[in-house]
Amino acid sequence: MARARKIPGLDDSASFGQAAATAVQVRSEEVFWFADGVLDTSNPERVHDMRVATRRLRAALEIFADCFPKSEHRALLREVKLLADALGERRDPDVQIDALEKLREELGQGERTGVNGLVAEIRARQTDGNEHVQEALERITEARLEERLAALAEKAGAS
């Protein structure tokens, strides 16, 4: 998992508003950096990294909520949450399949049929999850989420 980038200027001399601007800007850049290659199913870590980055952005938006204009903040937080949900729909099956496949190795032949059936069902959800991530990526591009988050961050810095 990728480590969070250090946010410059979050020291004891910073104002809450300045910290909000920098934190949201840095965390937002992280999300869009990981978007590249996220649909590549051969590399599940990419989805995981983008999901973690989205969680960190969401946390920054929630912590600094009072620094932003209410309606813009609410709309953007909702969009980030929808993105996080779509990434979760893709990531959760990855983790579940991995756990079940490890257990299957430990079980006898007579028990593997049941595990295989469950894995097949989860795989179908995994495929749906990838489609939802694709839709979410298209939606955030259309909605210019990156630009709007940058604009929101600037507003906090100006307060």
Binding site: L10, D11, D12, S13, A14, S15, F16, G17, Q18, A19, A20, E62, I63, D66, C67, A156, S159
Partner: peptide, 22 residues
Amino acid sequence: KARRVKGLEPSGSLVDNARRIV
């Protein structure tokens, strides 16, 4: 839903506001 943190002030210091949130 997270509990609402009262008394946050964007123009105040990060330290004071962070303490309230924590």
